[in-house]
């Protein structure tokens, strides 16, 4: 199997994985990083969002061997102020989509530290939450540094 080299949350990994393996699969099944959730497995819902060099990426439709950059998962963002902002705002119900929401939001505030409501809605529209925590997510991101 072709060798796969990945940098995830600052740690370097060398793995064997068949060509065609998704990044989400490698993160969850090979590296045990189960914070990245798979909800649709075809790039429609955002639950599997990770960052590659700071940009949000749908890891379930990203080929692991094609990743060119440093990967950051929710496990690498556990101390990000957004986590406490989500907790305070009650921006979590079942929580299955939430890690992906936080990863997307972290990419947003890194690029735009004081996003407007419009910018939040634009950046977060690819992350579906069936419980409907959206108003609280918006609030959490608006006040992420409080």
């Amino acid at each position: 199997m072709p060798e796969l080299r990945l940098t995830v949350n600052g740690a370097d990994h060398r793995l064997d994985a068949p060509i065609g393996t998704s990044l989400a699969h490698v993160l969850r099944e090979e590296l045990g990083l189960i914070g990245t959730k798979i909800a649709c497995n075809e790039g429609h819902c955002g639950a599997c969002t990770v960052q590659v060099d700071g940009a949000p990426v749908l890891s379930c439709i990203t080929l692991a061997h094609a990743v060119d950059g440093d990967v950051t998962t929710i496990e690498g963002l556990r101390d990000h102020p957004l986590v406490e902002a989500f907790v305070r705002a009650d921006a979590v119900q079942c929580g299955f989509c939430t890690p992906g929401q936080v990863v997307s939001a972290a990419a947003l505030v890194a690029a735009t530290p004081e996003p407007t409501t419009e910018e939040i809605r634009h950046a977060m529209a690819g992350n579906i939450c069936r419980c409907g925590t959206y108003p609280k997510i918006e609030e959490a991101i608006l006040h992420w540094r409080d």
Binding site: I34, K37, D90, F96, T98
Partner: peptide, 19 residues
């Protein structure tokens, strides 16, 4: 009240059946 289990869920530590 902030949820008792909010942190586990937000940080991706909560173990679902899928995990």
């Amino acid at each position: 009240a902030v949820r008792k289990d909010a942190r586990e869920r937000v940080r991706g530590e909560a173990r679902f059946t899928a995990d």
